[in-house]
Amino acid sequence: MKPAQFDYADPRSVEDAVALLQQHGADAKILAGGQSLVPLLNMRLARPAVIIDVGKLRDLDYIRDDGDALVIGALTTQRSVERSELVAREHPLLAATTRYIAHPQIRNRGTFGGSIAHADPAAECPALAVALDMQITVVGPGGARVIAAADFFVTYLTTSLEQDEILTDVRVPKLTPGTGWSIQEVARRHGDFAMAGAICTLTLERGRCAAARIALFGVGAVPVRAPEAEQTIIGQEPNAALFEEAGARASAEISEPLADIHGSSEFRRHLAGVMTQRALTEAFSRAEAR
């Protein structure tokens, strides 16, 4: 279980990284924290000719308060997000979500940008990106562009990043006042990828649900929103029956979930509904408490 040979470059600027990507095209792979890539290298399931190690781009390691959003540099580790006082204060959902990622030893290396660029549909960060409509900044030869999370995830482990682009930061919108949140997932073991999970936000105005967002993970090729389930509760006075109905809607509206040895397609579909219901219930209680 040793990696095949590859060439290695460790650029010192985003521009250099982009130039290397341009030079090597599909033969190159970006290495950030490496927590997903290096196991694949060890198993020789990933066989890049060139590894572009962006670990020395330390100026992509930051968490910044930008008013109505937090901006997180791509190389900020998941652990830094988890432990950030700024995040704890301004974005408890982001902090909570980070704690669901694997284990501390992984989060100490794994990067926030990397987990989004890796686009594992069972992972938490991509789902959070979809739930919150994060804005993802990528830099290519022509400069920077911003991609909305909804347009970012294409299919399993595939994004709309071009071959010669690199993800540099992510803008994470804060929750508006009166908004409750929840992340729920069910995994075989604590820290495993979810068999199914749901991230929900729910905004209350005068006792009614003014806005709701539901993002599901582990149930498809990409993290998905559940718009019909959201519409079920928006404008309504939240209650248990409504959440159950929303869960059923979420379960019904997702396309065929991927089956694996841990869960059949049918089971995951069912779990998506249960997680949605539980997440809405908790989000509502948080919204009431705010």
């Binding site: 290695y8 460790d10 290495l31 490496g34 927590q35 290096v38 196991p39 060890n42 590894i51 190690d53 670990g55 652990r79 501390p104 030893q105 992984i106 100490n108 290396r109």
Partner: peptide, 13 residues
């Protein structure tokens, strides 16, 4: 100072 897996990290990192 941080606990990490040394098997899924390259020496060059």
């Amino acid at each position: 100072g941080q606990a990490v897996r040394s098997c899924i990290m390259l020496a060059v990192q």
